[in-house]
Computed example of a mutant assay.
Amino acid sequence: MAKVGVKDTRKQQLINATMESIAELGMQNTTIISISKRAGMSSGIISHYFGGKRGLIEAALRYLLAHLGKELRERMAETDGSLEQRLNCIVDSNFSNFQRSALAAKTWLSFWARSMHEPGLQRLQQINNARLYSNLRYAFAQVMEPTAATEAARQTAAMIDGFWLRSALSLDPQESFEAGQRLCKRFVQDTLARPQTTSVSVTQREQPLERTIHYSR
């Protein structure tokens, strides 16, 4: 059991070092050497645990996705279960202190750019996008007809992604993140306030892609 703990600790240290290297040097200039130096480990251990740089970078992206899912579940557990609060949890998780930190923001931006050229990263990003849309649509479908729920989910996802991206690239990221978060939540509030009619039964409503809620940009 002790060996498993050491392995997990070392793998997390390498993931942290990868994000630090990407944030400082960019994806292109991040190397096995730059990562291993930050982690204080030999370069060979990266190949041993992850099979190389590409495997480690994918592991770092999975870590960011898992962190978002964890934040969302924790926030959901503290709500009264109302629809607006559940939707706000999705927004708040995306704009959390960790997700708006310089380390996470720079790493996300690098992943997004690289995913257009790396099939593994592209696959993870597509899964992530599908989870976001599915969770949003499932929530809106509680009070909307399918077509309206689809439209609301797409608009909300676009606003979350758009405001997050603009904020990460702005001269004053923290102020922009806060403004984007407020505007996304206002959109959710305004959308739910519109008169809705629905004849969709509980058994007919589309279920989320996974029983466990996951969310990210």
Results as ranks from 00 to 15, higher is better:
K3A: 12
K7H: 05
D8S: 12
D8W: 07
R10V: 03
Q13W: 05
L14D: 00
I15S: 04
L25V: 01
N29S: 11
I35K: 00
I35M: 00
K37L: 00
K37R: 10
R38F: 00
A39C: 02
I45W: 00
I46C: 07
H48C: 05
G51L: 03
G51E: 03
G52E: 08
G52I: 09
R54F: 06
Y63M: 09
L65A: 10
L65H: 13
L68V: 05
R73W: 12
E74M: 09
R75P: 02
M76E: 14
A77R: 13
E78M: 04
D80V: 08
L83T: 03
E84D: 08
Q85R: 11
R86W: 06
R86Q: 15
N88L: 06
N88K: 03
F95L: 07
F95Y: 14
N97R: 12
F98G: 02
S101H: 05
A105C: 09
L109R: 14
L109S: 07
S110C: 08
F111H: 06
A113E: 12
M116W: 11
H117P: 00
L121Y: 02
L121D: 07
R123E: 15
N129K: 09
N129Y: 12
L132S: 08
L132R: 06
Y133F: 12
S134T: 08
Y138C: 10
F140I: 10
A141C: 12
A141T: 06
V143D: 04
V143S: 09
E145A: 13
A148Q: 13
A148Y: 04
A149K: 07
T150P: 03
A153N: 01
T156N: 02
T156F: 03
A157M: 10
A157H: 03
A158P: 01
D161H: 06
D161N: 06
W164C: 02
L165T: 12
R166Q: 12
R166V: 11
L169S: 07
L169M: 14
L171T: 15
D172A: 11
Q174A: 13
E175P: 05
Q181M: 14
C184M: 08
F187N: 01
V188N: 02
Q189C: 02
T191L: 03
T191R: 07
L192D: 04
A193D: 11
R194A: 12
S201E: 11
S201W: 15
V202T: 13
T203L: 14
Q204R: 15
R205Q: 10
E206Q: 15
E206F: 09
E206W: 06
E210W: 10
R211H: 15
T212E: 15
S216E: 05
S216P: 01
